[in-house]
Nucleic acid binder design. Structure first.
Length: 627
DNA sequence: AAGCCCCAG
DNA sequence: CATTCTGGGGCTT
């Protein structure tokens, strides 16, 4: 999978680079759209979403005045005195719409990875490949924009062309669905990996979609202004890169890998180098329930215990509302606080957590609630934590208070893999295996659904017709006026007796979607037989241009690293491996196989030495502290 | 596991 | 410069 050491020609010729089809969906100015749904009158006005003293996002009308994300309120008002403001400090509604978006995306593939409230990646490789089989010789015409503008997808020998074109159809359908069901507009990027899908999706905004001609990945990257545009490179990484004279993506492409390794360690250096060429082997990681649920409130200055307690009381109440929907019982709580500190440039947070008794929660109609007096117990725990963090004898000055539930009863201690072997009780595993066995399985498969829409469009609708133009005029009005506040609430028609009713709504085909359950389509049989991971890397059944890599994947029995937490090492045959649910397969591959260090591939050992400890960042800061 | 840091939108 | 309100992941202890 590590391809940077190959010649560039060889790299470009290597067909397996484009085997996947990934769609990145990005909701246009998400918070602003949600507020416009709640109050359609806002749609014609410049709108800013305010949190404390800043505009965190704004609609496109406001952007015409020069208002932009994270702008100071005072500055925005200067640029646009008539700016309408909506307070967006409470994220409840955004969370709800975000969950509904996620639910809709899940109808297209189970492989959906959420990034923040408003972005998702979908791995639609399987969907597209099935569609491809039925397509025969016919060459479809793409939807939306292509990058570069005058490029064609036509000349790649790996056959990615048709896959990506089908990807554009799927992307259009996904965006149409989001618009029909929720009244929101979005952008999509279609490419052969996550990095490129995200980057290319932002080329045409808003409410548009763009597909990348894969052979132009490199030039997309080299044309970028800042290395910060590469996901994963933030302020600190940029600084570290600057110190070894890497100022642009082009520099990153050109720097010796060894030099990069010295600063970042093997894993990070390899990834950075790959990214600079548009190579991204990371998998779309299916998002499940959140690992933590948190709330925080920034404030000017709090220096009295009573004030702290009052703030925490409000937060506890709000947090209780959040976990009601989640369905899991929290067993650990964490406080987060920020002290005023003139000496530090970056805001420094302190946290302290404690376990809580699950008995302070009860379940009512599938909802988790605090028992009587539970709120006070929780608040007492929180205040104890606070007093452990802050020396009450001295004066203090708090500028942020936060609370988080960090552990949950239903969450697995040993991770999903361990749990799968111990007892098949894992939520996410079950969620997949349950779809076809509960009587909710649709008559048609996912492909049938897509064919009804996708294929008929191929034959009957005007080719290349742009959704972007159409959607502005068609259903926005009807949708936005339909979505009232009550629509933001969870679906009222909760079905009793559904085996997994307690779980997140998207796991329940009845609850998660207003339309008929037959639209939901996900067959376990298909999922299990199609080993996406083995398809996405060279496999025995597929001839490959990089046999050495294929050998690594097929010759070796899959052996987990010896774990100190497990009594017996588990050895899997490849056959057994393929029987596992895909998300488990994915996690296993991520854990053991990706990336495979060159040295280890050559060695006789089957171990991948766990993590190659890239503590360079930490060392860097320790070193800098001393200077 | 707890606590800190960095990253993302 | 960070600034808001989150959520994920990695590292050291």
């Amino acid at each position: 999978m590590l391809l940077h050491h190959m010649d560039q020609d060889e790299l470009l010729d290597t067909c397996d680079l484009h085997q996947r089809t990934i769609i990145h969906i990005d909701i246009d100015c998400f918070y602003a759209q949600v507020e416009e749904l709640r109050n359609p009158l806002l749609r014609t006005k410049p709108l800013g979403i305010q949190q404390k003293n800043i505009i965190v996002t704004c609609n496109y009308i406001a952007r015409q005045f020069g208002v932009h994300k994270l702008m100071l309120l005072s500055e925005a008002k200067k640029l646009c005195p008539q700016l309408t403001l909506v307070n967006g400090e409470d994220l409840t509604n955004y969370r709800k719409i975000s969950a509904r978006i996620f639910d809709i995306l899940l109808m297209f593939t189970p492989f959906v990875e959420k990034l923040g409230m408003d972005e998702n990646w979908l791995d639609v490789t399987e969907v597209v490949n099935k569609k491809l089989e039925e397509l025969g010789d016919c060459t479809p015409i793409r939807e939306g924009f292509i990058y570069p503008e005058d490029a064609s997808l036509g000349s790649c020998s790996c056959g990615c062309e048709k896959r990506l074109i089908l990807g554009t159809h799927l992307a259009k359908e996904i965006r149409s669905r989001l618009h029909e069901e929720l009244g929101i507009t979005s952008c999509a990027g279609i490419a052969h990996n996550k990095l490129m899908a995200k980057l290319i999706g932002s080329k045409n905004k808003p409410n548009k979609q763009t597909v990348l001609a894969p052979k132009f990945s490199q030039s997309v990257l080299s044309e970028m202004n800042s290395i910060r545009d590469i996901t994963g490179i933030g302020e600190k990484f940029e600084k570290m890169l600057n110190e070894i004279d890497v100022k642009s993506v082009r520099d990153l492409q050109l720097i010796e890998l060894d030099k990069l390794k010295r600063v970042f360690g093997y894993d990070q250096a390899t990834k950075l180098k790959d990214f600079s060429f548009g190579i991204d082997n990371t998998l779309v990681k299916t998002s499940g329930k959140p690992k933590s649920i948190s709330l925080e409130d920034a404030c000017k200055s709090i220096s009295l215990r009573a004030e702290v307690e009052e703030k925490f009381r409000v937060l506890v109440t709000r947090l209780a509302l959040l976990i009601a929907d989640d369905g899991r019982i929290p067993i650990s709580i964490k406080i987060i606080l920020r002290k005023f500190d003139g000496t530090k440039r970056v805001s420094h947070r302190e946290t302290k957590q404690a376990n809580i008794q699950p008995t302070i929660f009860k379940e009512v109609d599938g909802k988790i609630q605090l028992v009587d007096g539970g709120q006070q117990i929780l608040l007492d725990v929180v205040m104890k934590l606070f007093e452990k963090t802050i020396d009450m004898k001295k004066s203090f000055n708090i500028t942020l208070l936060g609370l988080a539930f960090t552990k949950f009863q239903q969450q697995n201690k040993g991770g999903r893999i361990a749990n799968y072997f111990i007892k098949k009780s894992d939520i996410e595993v079950q969620s997949i295996t349950s779809f076809s066995s509960d009587g909710y399985s649709p008559n048609g498969s996912m492909m049938d659904t897509h064919n009804r829409h996708g294929m008929s469009r191929l034959s009957s609708s005007p080719m290349g017709m742009d959704l972007d133009a159409a959607s502005d005029t068609t259903s926005i009005a009807s949708c936005s006026s339909d979505v009232s506040e009550s629509d933001l609430e969870p679906s009222p028609k909760k079905k009793r007796g559904f085996p997994f009713a307690k779980r997140r709504s998207h796991l329940n085909p009845i609850d998660c979607y207003d339309a008929s359950p037959s639209k939901l389509s996900c067959r376990v049989g298909d999922l299990r037989l199609n080993s996406r991971e083995f398809d996405s890397v060279p496999s025995t059944s597929t001839p490959t241009h990089s046999p050495s890599i294929a050998k690594q994947f097929n010759a070796q029995p899959i052996t987990p690293p010896t774990s100190s937490t497990q009594n017996e090492p588990v050895v899997l045959s490849k056959e057994t491996f393929k029987e596992l649910p895909l998300d488990v397969q994915q996690e296993l591959l991520e854990t053991w196989c990706l990336p495979i260090p060159k040295s280890l591939a050559q060695a006789t050992s089957t171990q991948t030495s766990g993590k190659a400890k890239s503590n360079t960042l930490h060392r860097y800061f320790i070193a800098n502290k001393q200077t």
